[in-house]
């Protein structure tokens, strides 16, 4: 079992363990959004879980590294924090900050990271840019909030895991990228009503259950 140092604390983890997971399991918090065990290759898209590993020039995302003996890891160097704070500020700059009315309030990963990194929820300096569509109501049971979504992609993965094929997908590109239900011909083949896996995994409350099916039928 590899033994290594994270922030001067000695940690042991099984061969092949992802560094991020090893740290989280040992109560060393590294901000992260898109990491989920089982996503292979890891999506590495949120760009939050940077750490400094001795011998590497630049900070690396800890979800891409497997633990090695004698590795020396630092989770809070200025370079790491700079990248994490910028990434978080970018995410918040396109986020509709309305925590009071959001079902993820208090369990939201963005709130957690903002507190941890000491970044205000409405960061100064960056203009706020929101997408035009506030709510995508096209799914019979779910509502999708593009201005809450951080595009971590975990919902796509868990849906595929549970249903063999995913009812959710990325669509559009650049700033306009969203999660959508495009491409799924018949949603009735998915047991969305009793599943909720995507809702449960969402770190920010971008997917929520419609209040009733009637609402859709109206």
């Amino acid at each position: 079992m590899p033994k290594f140092l994270v922030d001067n604390k000695e940690i042991q983890a099984k061969q092949g363990t992802i560094l991020l997971k090893a740290c989280l399991d040992n109560e060393i918090y590294i901000p992260n959004l898109c990491y989920l065990e089982g996503i292979d290759p890891p999506s590495v898209s949120c760009r939050m879980c940077f750490v400094k590993i001795e011998g590497e020039r630049q900070p690396v995302p800890s979800c891409t590294v497997t633990v090695k003996d004698d590795m020396v890891v630092k989770t809070d160097t200025p370079a790491v924090r700079q990248l994490q704070r910028t990434a978080l500020r970018l995410l918040l700059s396109v986020h509709h900050v309305d925590c009071k009315n959001c079902q993820a309030n208090k369990k939201c990963e963005l709130q957690r990271m903002a507190k941890f990194l000491k970044v205000g929820l409405k960061p100064k300096g960056l203009e706020r840019h929101l997408r035009e569509i506030e709510i995508d109501r096209s799914h019979p049971f779910l509502d999708y909030y593009p201005n809450r979504c951080v595009l971590c992609g975990k919902c796509i993965h868990v849906c595929r895991e549970k249903n063999g094929q995913s009812a959710l997908t990325f669509s559009k590109r650049g700033f306009d990228t969203v999660i959508s239900f495009y491409g799924v011909k018949d949603l009735s083949t998915f047991e969305c009503e009793n599943c909720n896996a995507c809702i449960d995994i969402c770190p920010v409350g971008a997917l929520i259950l419609k209040e009733s099916k009637e609402e859709f039928l109206k």
Partner: peptide, 21 residues
């Protein structure tokens, strides 16, 4: 580049959008 960004990662999707704006 912003038009052609795939939208996957935070820096490219949102960062280049801020640069453009």
């Amino acid at each position: 580049t912003q038009n052609e960004s795939c939208g996957k990662c935070t820096f490219c999707r949102i960062g280049t959008y801020h640069l453009l704006k």
